[in-house]
């Protein structure tokens, strides 16, 4: 059974890159480009895993994460957070909020794939 992933990221080129190597790896990929209605998109599509950017237009990824963890339906949803800010403070904050994995941009494609496989063992 194919696993589904939802990419929440506003840079179209980054979305396209991730989409490319995830499809090659056999994932079912969808994407969403804004922060304010990201929560609705997650609830509507109910993906197996979410890749979440931190700096999103409309709403911060951190807030979205907090909401996901507050909702029983999504409290255990694996979330891989990507950020271009790369500060230790951000990582601490995200981990306290219950992020599943935290990676800084630019990332290695292979590392992202590894992380996803770990979060979603077959």
């Amino acid at each position: 059974m194919t696993k589904s992933v939802l990419i929440i990221e506003d840079e179209p080129n980054i979305v396209e890159a991730i989409r490319f190597f995830l499809i090659r790896d056999g994932w079912q990929v969808a994407s969403h480009g804004t922060g304010d209605d990201a929560l609705e998109a997650i609830r509507a599509q109910a993906p197996d895993l979410v890749i979440l950017d931190v700096m999103l237009p409309g709403r911060s990824g951190m807030d979205i994460l907090a909401d996901l963890r507050a909702d029983p339906a999504t409290v255990a949803l694996p979330v891989l957070m990507l950020t271009a800010r790369g500060q230790a403070r951000d990582r601490d904050l995200a981990e306290r909020m219950g992020v599943s994995r935290f990676m800084t941009k630019p990332f290695s494609n292979a590392e992202v794939l590894d992380a996803l496989r770990q979060l979603m063992p077959d």
Partner: peptide
């Protein structure tokens, strides 16, 4: 980092 991410990926 944002443009660099696209370039690297």
């Amino acid at each position: 980092r944002t443009p660099m991410t696209s370039i690297r990926a």
